[in-house]
């Protein structure tokens, strides 16, 4: 098992005819993932990489190919609409890679999706990978922009707000011969779809996941909420790392959501919440995997 996506999950790419979307769609095909359709309004009928049909709408693409998930690569002014289209069409999972969506748009999207069965991952996230059992973990499901080859099929769940820190953690695990069940990037924006807590709950219920790495950063209180839940409910060992201990207050550190404001969202508060919940805290990002492995 795994969470969110399995190696046979069929998915589509919204914005497949753009440079960024097309490049990563090709990398997903190379990884052996079941990318079955592209969507670009007005370009229906074209083919991507000679094998993937492009449709005018998500609904058409789903009806013709059976896709149940999507990756969004459309530019920021149109991304909120793309998420809502995916939800309206009834996708199980929408993964929004786009960085730079206005917060006001995401407030509206989050409100509109509150009674929807569609799960939103992101925006401003690297996506999700469930490694496969081929060479360099190929044959798995890669939705987004993560490098596929760094993964290895196994039993550790990884959840993070940061792309490159996720890759660091995954690489550390793989280099030690330890594989991953699913790696989930929830993104660096202040109003995200899935939170650390949502992903932790899925890992806790997944029989194949035996340990979890949870990576957070300054800003907001999502890590604290996840830790409070984990303290009484999570049955699996968790190791964590919080980035941004040296960030000056009031400055956005690259990610729109990485900001300490009004004394809230400090790395110290999050590390304390982790320790209080029995989550192992890696002192440097080089020790994320070892911190977890020592606990297992």
């Amino acid at each position: 098992m795994s969470i969110l996506v399995k190696p046979d999950t069929k998915f589509l790419v919204q914005g497949i005819t753009g440079g960024f979307g097309g490049r990563h769609a090709q990398l997903s095909l190379d990884y052996g993932s079941q990318l079955v359709a592209g969507v670009t309004p007005g370009k229906g009928g074209q083919m991507f990489a000679d094998t993937v049909p492009v449709f005018d709408s998500v609904a058409e693409a789903m009806a013709e190919t059976g896709a149940t998930a999507s990756a969004i690569f459309v530019p920021p002014p149109f991304a909120a609409d793309a998420i809502l289209e995916g939800a309206a069409a009834g996708l199980d999972l929408v993964v929004c890679i786009t960085e730079g969506i206005p917060v006001r748009d995401m407030i509206s999207v989050k409100d509109a999706l509150k009674d929807s069965s569609t799960i939103l991952l992101g925006p401003n996230c690297p996506g999700v990978v469930t490694p496969g059992d081929g060479k360099d973990s190929s044959g798995g499901c890669r939705i987004g922009i993560a490098p596929g080859y760094i993964h290895k099929k196994g039993n550790i769940g990884v959840v993070s707000r940061s792309g490159t820190l996720t890759y660091e953690a995954v690489w550390q695990l793989t280099s030690r011969g330890v594989g991953q069940s699913t790696c989930v990037g929830i993104g660096g924006d202040p109003v995200p779809g899935m939170t650390h807590l949502d992903v932790l709950k899925l890992f806790n219920d997944d029989p194949e996941t035996t340990g979890i790495i949870m990576i957070g950063e300054i800003g907001g209180t999502a890590e604290e909420e996840a830790a409070a839940w984990a303290k009484t409910h999570c049955t699996k060992p968790i190791a964590g790392f919080i980035a941004g201990a040296t960030a000056p207050p009031g400055r956005r550190m690259g990610h729109a959501g990485a900001i300490v404001s009004g004394g809230k969202g400090t790395a110290e508060a999050k590390q304390d919440a982790f320790r209080e919940a029995g989550i192992g805290v890696a002192e440097t990002p080089s020790e994320m995997a070892d911190t977890l492995l020592k606990m297992m």
């Binding site: 922009i145 792309g163 490159t164 820190l165 040296t246 690259g254 990610h255 790395a267 080089s286």
Partner: peptide
Amino acid sequence: LVNGAGLAMATMDAIKHYGGDPANFLDVGG
């Protein structure tokens, strides 16, 4: 000089952890 915002923050933190002081945050992107 780092690629990725999270890794860039973590790099600053690591410098501090070993007793140094970072001069900047710099994410050159993917």
